[in-house]
Simulated assay, not measured.
Amino acid sequence: MLHTVQGIVLRTTDYGEGNKIVRLLTREAGKVGVMARGAKKLNSRLGAASQAFTRGEYVYFRTSGLGTLSSAEIADAHHGLREDLMKSAYAAYMAEMVDRMLEDGDGSAVLFDQLAAALTAIEENKDAQIVVHIFELRMLMLAGYMPVLDTCVSCGSSSGPAAFSPQLGGTLCPNCLFKDPRGVPLTEAAWKLLRMFVGIDIRRLGATTVKPETKAVLKSILRAYMDTHIGVNWKARSFLDQMEKYPLP
């Protein structure tokens, strides 16, 4: 059966001398894998459309298992992401989240639109860390691991949190801090942003200005929560950490 979809390249794997296996997040069919025959060859008509982060229209034939890519028309090549190592690292982390948290066939038009908007936002120099945090919450919501942010995860109090407990799955009020001594201290600013991020459509994300200390709290909370509940050794995130620790001159 022939399929025509809007797709974003999540990753590619070399296969044989001239072929690539391409993992796509599609708007119509969720995550799919296709074989791009000859894509490694210099004159291949599928080569450019098989590069990471590329968005376009993909036509593939599939009866079962891996599909075979027939043609592709690029809508956005995202050269700016691949040419900037830091931007590429952030983009790769989001693509890896989608690839590793979704099974084949999983996904939605909403997730496709949010990933497309997130890649564009980073390419357009919007705060990449903030974009990634919003997308992390999108993926957690999709996976059914959304943290409790509006009330205390232990007693249900809405008086305001004092810490975030990755282990218990949400915020803790001052009276319940003893429930998790390793909880991450949560500032008012970070708490407000976390709740705001849940409802933000990345397509409408404007310019953001967040203090470095608040960004540090957000990063600490979401990293700890992802590691506790998703439990994936993120390759792209490790590279991103190295880039942040040893920035290019």
Rank of each mutant, 00 (worst) to 15 (best):
R11C: 03
T151H: 12
L42P: 12
D104S: 11
G105D: 12
R100A: 02
L149Y: 02
K215I: 04
N125M: 06
R82F: 04
G231E: 03
R27N: 06
I134H: 14
R195P: 02
T26L: 04
R182V: 03
K126G: 03
F164L: 05
R195E: 03
R62F: 01
K211H: 12
L193D: 09
S108P: 00
L10R: 06
E17C: 01
M146L: 15
G33H: 08
A118W: 00
R37E: 13
I230V: 15
L140Y: 02
G18V: 09
T63K: 15
L140V: 06
M196I: 04
V22R: 07
Q242Y: 09
V98N: 08
D227P: 11
D180I: 01
L66T: 05
A128D: 01
Q114T: 02
R23L: 13
Y58Q: 07
A29M: 05
R223W: 13
S71F: 07
D201S: 10
S157R: 04
S157L: 02
Y246F: 14
A39G: 06
F53M: 11
L66P: 03
F135R: 06
I230C: 08
I221D: 11
S44E: 13
S64V: 05
D180F: 02
K245R: 13
E103M: 10
G107W: 12
R138W: 05
V59Q: 12
S71C: 07
T209F: 09
G199Q: 09
Q114K: 10
S50E: 13
G67V: 02
I21Q: 01
L10W: 00
